[in-house]
Design a protein around this nucleic acid. Structure first.
Length: 104
DNA sequence: AAACTGACTTCTC
DNA sequence: GGAGAAGCCAGTT
């Protein structure tokens, strides 16, 4: 069984994020085995079209700020997270990581 | 094989 | 607290 590429690991990890929680790019990179590869993680997300395969909307920046979203923009992403029960800072596009960050 | 890109992160001003 | 610059990593061309 050949080792999965980082990209595949990221995909798999993103799928493991429970509903109502979010993970940071750095966290996924760390879990994938390469801390610091946050940028690469983001690139992989961008390549992914939409969610059925990888809920990239549950991935946010290290400070909880919502960054891009290939399928609808940050606004859409925020709405989806709110719908899942993720806590946001009032009046901002920042997730309250203290409450909604994915923990192992 | 080399160079460029990018949904990041962290530091400094 | 906000803006700018540098550094890191994997993928794509």
């Amino acid at each position: 069984m050949p080792p999965l590429s980082f990209r595949d690991k990221i995909y798999n990890l993103a799928r493991q994020i429970p509903k109502g929680k979010v993970a940071t790019y750095g966290q996924l990179a760390f879990l994938a085995g390469s801390p610091g590869a946050a940028r690469s993680v983001g690139m992989c997300m961008k390549q992914n079209p939409d969610v059925p395969r990888t809920p990239c909307h549950r991935v946010v920046a290290s400070n909880g700020k919502l960054t891009g979203y290939s399928a609808g923009g940050v606004s859409r992403k925020k709405e989806m997270l709110l719908e899942e029960g993720v806590t946001f800072k009032q009046g901002t596009d920042v997730v309250d990581l203290a409450v909604s960050q994915w923990r192992l």
